[in-house]
Amino acid sequence: MVNQDEKILSLSNLSMSYGGDPVLKWIDLDVYPGQIIGYIGPNGAGKSTTVKIMLGLVGGYNGKVEIFGQDIADGDPSYKQKIGYVPENAEIYDNLTACEYLTFTGEMYGMDPETAERKALLLLDKFEMRGVFHTKISSFSKGMKQKVLIISSLLHDPDLLFLDEPLSGLDANSVMIIKEILAQLAAEGKTIFYSSHIMEVVEKISSRIVLLADGKIVADGTFAELQAKNEEGTLEEIFNQLTGFNEHREIAKSFVSIVREGGS
């Protein structure tokens, strides 16, 4: 177990711009072990950018990012040792077989190939994918690819997980398994950073919700705390309220009327 008081991750005064307008504006965030952070916000709010900065994929930010107590700007990539990542666009070397890909990523995290392969097969078996261990990923369905990505992010038993829309393409049963896995990992003291647009899931699994809008954190707390501060309701309603969006009915109405125009 990790020490509960130790900060796993700390952003202070983080801001970032890609040339033009700032994408992130002076973000402060501390994350502790065992938390499942639901990281939500409208498209273009800066969620992916935050995650990419923390993973060292994007440079040129201002402010300080500390992960496991290490300032990531010092150029030493070893902090990534204990991080797992499921990327948004399901980027994967799909010319490799599941076995080859998982062994490879495991080795990149410093595992030895035998252990990585054995663990990968055991984990795939739990998703009933043992039969495609030596099949090229390019022939997989979206859900199968997603399961490979999830396994590759967990194979090396990381302490911090970044999941970007990890449930996309999974069927209802698999979703239940993954949600339960996340809950149990958090109970073991793992920290999970979960970005998604599906509010029902975020509401259910997160122990803390961070809402980003226009490059700033506009809400931070448990679901109950958010409900207390805002009008009672679902996370979706709170989300709409905090991002100042209440025209969905009007937009839908005029959309439908355009669809109906000249139709038969």
Partner: peptide
């Protein structure tokens, strides 16, 4: 190949 960035640079591997 832009996949490299997401797959390799997220690992504890020196740039």
């Amino acid at each position: 190949d832009v996949r490299d960035k997401n797959i390799l640079n997220t690992k504890p591997v020196d740039q």
